[in-house]
């Protein structure tokens, strides 16, 4: 595996795999995080994977000795090189498949019409295209449980709103450019909102707190408002 290590401040190291966003690089990132999980080392505080990088945060005190002439950064880099040699050994785990039910349009998806008009499609055609994709969660970021999703068909792409909404309800499913995503908590945002899922994407009381994880494959399925209400009540009962 080709990568380079660079400092991220004085308590972080970036494992950098270049700047091409594709599923091959994503697989390598997944492989690295699996190694970090399997060989959880006490000097690592935590790690944050992204599209082409994994940031490893560490405590320099762990490598502190009054005699040895190796800086904590150098010592940590050596440990990472050793860990990543194990990459060939690590088994590729089965990717999780997650289905996300979405009630499209109406008050849940106020911008569905805009997306349809922008692409000269009917509302049903937008829904059909959005539910036909095989999507990959590249990373979680921006907000707790917010997935950066790749794989949306370009035929339903739409520009962001000129001025962002101040409040977007949790569960809202949106489109921005060729990306689609789901808002886990109420936030301001400029995405075109086409529907809403009753599934809670951020569950602070559960482990892990995020419904989705990097590496998940997801599909969207269309549900009606009754089904939405039923599922929402079901999930509220679990709280």
């Amino acid at each position: 595996m080709k990568y380079k290590l660079e400092p991220l401040g004085d308590r972080g190291i970036m494992i950098d795999l270049g700047n091409e966003i594709d599923s091959a690089v994503h697989d390598k990132i997944q492989n690295i995080t699996r190694i970090l999980d399997n060989y959880s080392e006490s000097w690592i505080t935590e790690y944050i994977p992204a599209f082409t990088t994994v940031a490893v945060f560490y405590n320099p005190m762990f490598f502190y000795t009054s005699s040895v002439r190796v800086t904590p950064y150098e010592a940590a880099c050596m440990r990472i090189h050793e860990l990543l040699k194990k990459s060939e050994l690590s088994n590729r785990s089965q990717a999780r498949k997650v289905e996300i039910p979405v009630c499209y349009g109406g008050s849940f998806g106020p911008d569905l019409q805009f997306v349809a008009d922008h692409n000269s499609l009917t509302l049903d055609e937008v829904i059909r295209v959005h539910t036909s994709g095989d999507y990959l969660v590249y990373m979680i970021g921006f907000a707790p449980g917010f997935p950066y999703i790749g794989g949306m068909p370009a035929e339903i792409a739409a520009p962001r709103k000129e001025s962002p909404r101040l409040k977007i309800p949790p569960g809202s499913v949106g489109i921005a450019g060729e990306q689609t995503g789901v808002y886990p908590i109420e936030t301001p945002g400029g995405w075109q909102i086409i529907g809403r899922t009753p599934l809670p994407l951020f569950q602070p009381e559960q482990m892990p707190p995020s419904l989705l994880q990097a590496g998940d494959h997801i599909t969207f399925t269309a549900i009606d408002e009754d089904e939405y209400q039923r599922l929402q009540e079901e999930h509220h009962d679990h709280d």
Partner: peptide
Amino acid sequence: YGFQKYGVI
């Protein structure tokens, strides 16, 4: 700490 990979600040 330990939850930033899930987007938790």
